[in-house]
Design a protein around this nucleic acid. Sequence first.
RNA 1: GUGGUUGUAGCUCAGCUGGUUAGAGCACCAGAUUGUGGUUCUGGGGGUCGUCGGUUCGAACCCGAUCAUCCACCCCA
Length: 456
Amino acid sequence: MSSKPSIPKGTRDFLPETMVKRNYIFSTIKSVFEKYGFLPIETPSMENTETLMGKYGDEGDKLIFRILDSGDSVKNADISALSEGNFGKFSNSIAGKALRYDLTVPFARFVVQNQNDLAFPFKRYQIQPVWRADRPQKGRYREFYQCDADVVGSDSLLYEIELVQIFDEVLSKLGFDDFSIKINNRKILSGIAEVCGEADKLVAITVAIDKLDKIGIDGVVKELQERGVSEQAIKKINPLFNLNGSNEEKLSGLKTFLELSEVGLKGIEELSYVLSRVSELGIQKATVEFDVTLARGLNYYTGAIFEVKANNVQMGSICGGGRYDDLTGLFGLKGLSGVGISFGADRIYDVMNELKLFPAHTLTSTQVLFVNFGEAEQMQSLKLAKQLRLKNVACEVYPSAAKMQKQMKYANDRKIPFVVMIGSKEISTNQVTFKNMDSGEQQTSSLDHFVQTILS
RNA sequence: GUGGUUGUAGCUCAGCUGGUUAGAGCACCAGAUUGUGGUUCUGGGGGUCGUCGGUUCGAACCCGAUCAUCCACCCCA
C-alpha cells in the first residue's frame, strides 16, 4: 500500500455539504456588494514578487508564499547572496512570482495598470483566495478567501458610511445578531502620538495599544517602554486606556486631549461625521463602536479603520478594512484615495458553524432518482428524465441495474426526496411509479401528475 | 520564528506498573429481504499502533530523534 495522500498544512478539502454553506456566504456577500454598486473583478493568484514585497511590513514579507522558478531561470540564482547569508536577496533571485497575500495590494496594482479603462470613483468587489505562510491554528489557514469591496478615486466619507452599512447588512442577513463594528481613525492615532511628542513612534504606539484588551494596561505600558516610548509620553497616553461611555462621550473626551493637534482633530471630525450619519440612517443588528485602541497592523491605512468581531465566540476579527490615501502611489499613481473592507469568509463560516446560524435546509440538489431495472427500463427513464429536466427538475438515473436495495440506499444517502421506478408495467401503461422518501408513500400516475406533486 | 498538545482500523477513540493472538462504536461489504431506503438482527473484510533508532527475555506502552497535527505567542481574516 502506498503512503496515505495528504494536503499541505493549513489547506482544506471542502465536501459538498460544506461547499453549499460556503456558497451561501459568498452569494450573500456578493448580492449586498452588488446592491451598493460594486462591480466584480479578478486578479491572478500569483503576482510578481516585487509587487507584493515590502507592502505588508517585515513580518508580512516573511508570510508571503513564493513560487520557485523552474528550468533555466534557476541558473540566475544569486549564489553569492546565499553564501553571504542574504536569504531575502537569494530567494528573490530564484522566485520571481509569489502567491497573493491579500486582495488590496493586487487591486492597487490593477488600478494603476488599467487606469485608462476605469471610471472613477471605481468600485470593485473581489472574492478570491489568498495565501499566507503562517502557522495554522484556530481560525487561521494558509489558504483562505477574502471578500473585498473597495472604492478608489474618492475621499468622500459617504463611502465610509456605506461600508459600515454593508458590514451590518451582510452579517445581519447571515443571521448574526450580536457583533461589533469597531471603528477608529488613523488620524486620531497620529494626533495622539503628536500630542505625546512621539510622532515618529506612531507605529510602535499603535501596535502596542491595539493589544489593550488582550494584555491589559500594564502589558501595554510594558510594551511601550520596550519600544522606546518615553515615560512622559506613556503617562500622557494612560488616560486614554480608561476612555469609556457612549461614542459621543469618548469622542468629546478625546477632542480635549487632542486640542493641540490639527491632524488629531481632523480625525475626530471625520469619525464624528461618519458615526452620526450611520446612526441617523439606522443599523440592523450591529453595535457600532468607536474604539481608540483599534489600530490594526496594516500601515497603509490613513483614515478610517474598521474591524468586525462576533461576540460570544472565541475568534479573531471576521472582517477588516480602512482608508488608504496613497495606496496606488506605491505603483506610481499619485493622488487616488481608496477605502475598502474585507470579509473573512472562512472565519465567518467557522463562527456560523459554532453558533449554528446556518439554515436547516441541507444539501438537496437532485430531486428525483430513477431506479434502473435494465436496458429497456433505463432508456424509458432517460426519456422521462429529459422531460423533467426541461421543467427544471434536477434528476438522475441510476447507472446500472444494481439491486433495488442498493439503489434505494443511494437515494437515501443522497437525501433525494423522490424515487421513480420504471418497470415493464410502467412502460406499457406510460406511467410512473414514484415514492416519497420522506413519508414512504408510493403511487402510480401520469408523468404530469408526478411533476405537479413534486413541484407543489 | 518561539512554546506546548496529540499521533492506535476509512472516521471518533479505548488499550491496566511493559507480557503472548491489539479492541469498541460509526462507516463499508454480504445475508435475513430475487421490485423498496432510513429502524432491527447475523456474519465479514480492514491496523508493520506516525516513522527511524535505543533500553528490555519481551515495547502500542519506557527513552531519543524525526515527521505530522492541533493549540498558544508573534502577526493576522
